[in-house]
Simulated scan of single mutants.
Amino acid sequence: MTTILVTGGTGTLGRHVTERLRAEGHEVRVLSRSAQPYAVDLSEGGGGLDAAVEGVDTVVHCASSPGRGDDERAAAHLITAARRAGAGHLVYISIVGVDRVPFGYYKSKLATEKVIEESGLGWTVLRATQFHDLLARVFGALAKSPVLPMPAGISDQPVDVTEVAARLAELATSAPAGRVDDMGGPEVRTLDSLARSYLRATARRRPLLPVPLAGATYRAFRAGGHLTPGHATGKVTFEEYLTGRFGRRPRD
C-alpha cells in the first residue's frame, strides 16, 4: 500500500482522484485550504505542509488558483516540503495548449510545469483538455441572459473529470514518467454545438450570438491550440455527461 497526498483533494478533480486511490487500497491524505487535518494554503507553505508530506511516497498536485496567480509559488513550497520528506514522485495535472495559447492562466500552468521539471524530484505531467463540468458552468452562467453570446469560430474537446482522475491515479501508482501523452475528450466540437446540447438538456431556449474577438489568445483558441485530436482517449461524450447530470437526452 502506498501513501499518497492529493493537493486540492476536495476539488472537482481531486476528490475523484482521492476516491479512486482509496478504492484501490492506498492510504490517501487530502490537502486543501480547509480540509482537516491537512488544512494548508500552499501559497504560504508552513509547518502544516511539512506534516502533510511527511512519510508520503507520491504527491498528486491537483490544487490550483486561477484567480490568484500564485500557482508557481505554491508548487515551489510543495516541492521544498516534498524534498525534505523524501517523497519520490510528484504528479501534476496541467492543461492541453499551455505552450500554445498565450492566456494568462495557461502561462502560469506552463511556468509551474517548468518548476516541477526542475525540482529534482521524480515527476510526471499530464495535460488534459477542459472538463465537461467547466463548459456546463460557463453555459449556465451565459444562459442567464436572454441571448447566449458565444466566441465565434472556436471549438472544444471536453473530457470527463472521472476519466482524467482514473488516469492520474494510474500515473500516481506507476514510476515517474515525465511528460506523458495528452488526454482529450472523444470529440472535437464547435462551442455552438456544445452550447445547443446544453440548452436542450436544460430545457432552455436561447438564441446564440456569435461574438468575434480580437487578440493573440483568441487567435490561438481559434487555431485549436487547446485541442489534442490525436489523443482523443476519453470515452464519455458531452451528451452522455449532460444526460447523467440533468436526466434528459440533449438530442431528443
Rank of each mutant, 00 (worst) to 15 (best):
A141K: 14
V60P: 02
A169C: 06
A165G: 06
L194T: 06
T80L: 12
I4K: 01
P149Q: 08
D181K: 11
A143Q: 02
R249E: 12
E113R: 04
T190M: 00
A169Q: 04
A74Q: 10
E118L: 15
V59S: 06
G67N: 04
G225L: 00
E163C: 09
L78D: 03
L13T: 05
S64N: 05
R179S: 02
H26K: 02
T12H: 13
S43A: 13
T228L: 05
D156V: 12
A220M: 13
A74D: 01
V115S: 13
G55R: 07
F238Y: 13
P207K: 12
S174R: 15
T12I: 07
A172M: 05
G55D: 07
D252W: 14
R179W: 00
S108M: 05
R222V: 08
D50C: 09
S174I: 04
A165M: 08
L191D: 03
I95T: 03
T202Y: 08
A166T: 14
T173A: 09
F221M: 10
P151G: 10
L227T: 07
K144Q: 15
T58G: 01
T124E: 10
A165N: 07
W123C: 01
M1R: 02
Y38F: 14
A136I: 01
T237H: 05
V159R: 00
Y106F: 12
R22W: 08
T217F: 13
A81T: 10
A214W: 09
D133Q: 14
A82E: 01
V56Q: 03
P146M: 12
T173R: 12
H89N: 11
S94G: 02
A111Q: 11
F246P: 09
A23F: 03
A169P: 02
L142Y: 04
L126R: 04
T124F: 00
P66V: 11
V161I: 14
Q157W: 04
T233K: 08
S155C: 14
V101L: 14
D192P: 08
T202F: 13
G104Y: 10
M1K: 01
A175H: 03
V161C: 05
L90H: 04
P37D: 02
G14P: 04
V60L: 08
T237K: 11
Y198P: 00
E240R: 13
I116E: 00
S34W: 05
E117G: 03
S197T: 08
V211L: 14
T2E: 15
C62S: 03
A175K: 11
E54M: 05
P212S: 07
H26I: 10
R29M: 13
V159I: 14
G224R: 03
M150I: 15
R204G: 15
Y38D: 15
C62D: 01
G140E: 10
V180R: 00
G14S: 07
L199H: 04
G153N: 07
T243W: 02
V53P: 06
M1V: 09
A23G: 15
G185D: 01
L42I: 12
